[in-house]
Simulated scan of single mutants.
Amino acid sequence: MTTKEELAERYGRAPRPRRRRLYWIAVTGVAALLVAALAWLTVANSFDDVGFDETGFELVDARTVTVSFQATPPAGAAFACAVQALDEDFGIVGWRVVEYPGSEETTRAFVETIPTVAQATTGTVKACWVT
């Protein structure tokens, strides 16, 4: 006759070794730490984010474009924006980096003039960042 221990050994019902359980606890802990670190990096990067919305552009003449936009920097933070003028093939024909002082206003509107080296067809904001 077979005993319970022989059946458990034959069909895999033996208790799991302690070492294997500790391995999976460690793997789960490391995975949880990596997810938490990634979440923190995502949140921390958004604190210094400057949002912007283009509100229009005007072709003043063959060598000048004005670009209108709104920027939403963090409160009190100085920031800069790269504004550019593009031709019909989307080549850059003029650009300018403009720096703005910090302010407690949430959203601020700007109109910037860009000199160009050729006829432009549009003006746009390339990027804004905290300085």
Rank of each mutant, 00 (worst) to 15 (best):
A85Q: 12
E105K: 12
R108Q: 15
D49C: 08
V30S: 05
Q119L: 07
V117K: 02
V30W: 05
I92K: 14
P17L: 06
T42L: 13
P17R: 15
Y11G: 01
D49R: 15
P17I: 02
S46Y: 04
L7G: 12
T124C: 03
A120W: 01
W95L: 08
P15C: 02
V83K: 01
G56C: 00
R20S: 15
W129G: 00
Q84I: 10
T3Q: 06
P73W: 05
S103F: 08
A109C: 00
T64A: 08
W95V: 02
E112Y: 13
V50C: 05
P15E: 10
A26M: 14
A127S: 09
R108H: 06
A44P: 02
V27T: 12
A62V: 10
V30F: 06
E104G: 15
E9R: 15
A118C: 03
R18M: 09
Q119A: 07
T113A: 10
A71D: 07
A109Y: 01
W129P: 00
V50F: 04
A62H: 07
C81T: 13
R20P: 02
F90Q: 12
A36H: 03
A44K: 11
L34W: 09
P15L: 10
A26Y: 10
R13E: 10
C128G: 03
L22N: 09
F90G: 03
W95N: 09
A62M: 08
V117P: 00
P115Q: 11
F110Q: 00
L86Y: 07
L33M: 11
A26S: 11
P74Q: 09
R18P: 05
L7R: 11
I114M: 02
A39R: 06
K4G: 10
R96T: 10
W40M: 07
I25C: 10
F47L: 12
P101N: 14
T2G: 12
A62G: 13
E105V: 15
D53C: 06
N45E: 09
G56I: 01
Y100A: 07
I114R: 00
Q119F: 03
V130R: 03
T28P: 01
E58G: 05
N45Q: 15
T131A: 04
V125H: 01
T64H: 11
L34N: 04
G29I: 07
C128R: 00
T28S: 14
G94D: 05
R10M: 09
N45S: 12
V83Y: 02
F90C: 04
A39I: 09
W40R: 08
I25H: 13
I25D: 09
W95M: 07
Q84W: 01
A118K: 01
L34A: 13
W40A: 13
D87E: 14
M1E: 14
E58S: 11
K4Y: 08
A118E: 10
T72C: 06
G123M: 00
D48Y: 10
G29Q: 10
G51M: 00
A80N: 08
P73C: 05
N45A: 11
T131Y: 04
R16P: 06
V35Y: 07
A32I: 14
A8D: 15
R10C: 04
